[in-house]
Nucleic acid binder design. Structure first.
Lengths: 112, 112
DNA sequence: ACGGTGTATTGACTGCTGTCAATATACCGC
DNA sequence: GCGGTATATTGACAGCAGTCAATACACCGT
């Protein structure tokens, strides 16, 4: 496989420094929307809540509470990770996730 | 047409009082996601920015900046209104919109 | 009443998204 | 190495969401 050009992680406070207080250009809106889309899903909100409440959580502890199949949960965690909202750490055969508090704060700040 | 049972407007601080700090049950996650979905679109983010920056705005002033057809803009404004993020007021033949600041604040507070 | 203008609705189409079963991959203990 | 366990990927499918052209509706001035 050819190397992907590195996932361009969006910097919220750079792309939308004044949040929704002033108009966004096309690109800024698209970037901000891409992060919001990651969060605008019931399963992913539940996952974020579970991860945050626990400090960190392993996939095996997340599949049960959300009531979805393992591949689906894996998919949602990938989306959250790609958006930079959670970070993944491999420990042996387990994948551990923790929330990026700063990024969540930045996201909340957009609506200020 | 039979009367619709009134759109059930979701109360964010009631449904998710602790935001993402603690796990959300299925219903709360679904409700919160429905509001976030309204905001997770580039065109609607631009519209929110324009409306907020202007204080209030009429549809005719919004179609140009976002670069979409009039029916599409009308559709997006309807979605924002249904989510309670903006309020619509008819003035003669013009439709004026203003943002619901409290609701935006509540939404931002979820990520605190 | 009528023509014009601003907005909403309808219908149709396309692309994306969430989901799962099946399969593959990675890691561990023995 | 081997079987078992945890996670990721693939493939397929249904449903939804964004878009526009065409049309309908509402309001206004004349």
């Amino acid at each position: 496989m050819t190397r992907r050009p590195t996932p361009p992680l969006i910097d919220i406070s750079a792309c939308c420094p004044r949040g929704l207080e002033s108009p966004l250009d096309h690109e800024a809106a698209q970037q901000l929307a891409s992060v919001l889309k990651a969060v605008a899903d019931p399963a992913r909100l539940q996952l974020l809540g579970l991860i945050r409440a626990a400090g960190e959580a392993c996939t095996c502890d997340l599949t049960g509470p959300v009531g979805l199949s393992q591949p689906t949960v894996s998919h949602h965690l990938k989306v959250l990770t790609a958006a930079g909202l959670v970070h993944r750490e491999q420990r042996g055969q387990w994948a551990w996730f923790r929330a990026d508090e700063e990024r969540l704060r930045d996201l909340g700040h957009v609506f200020r």
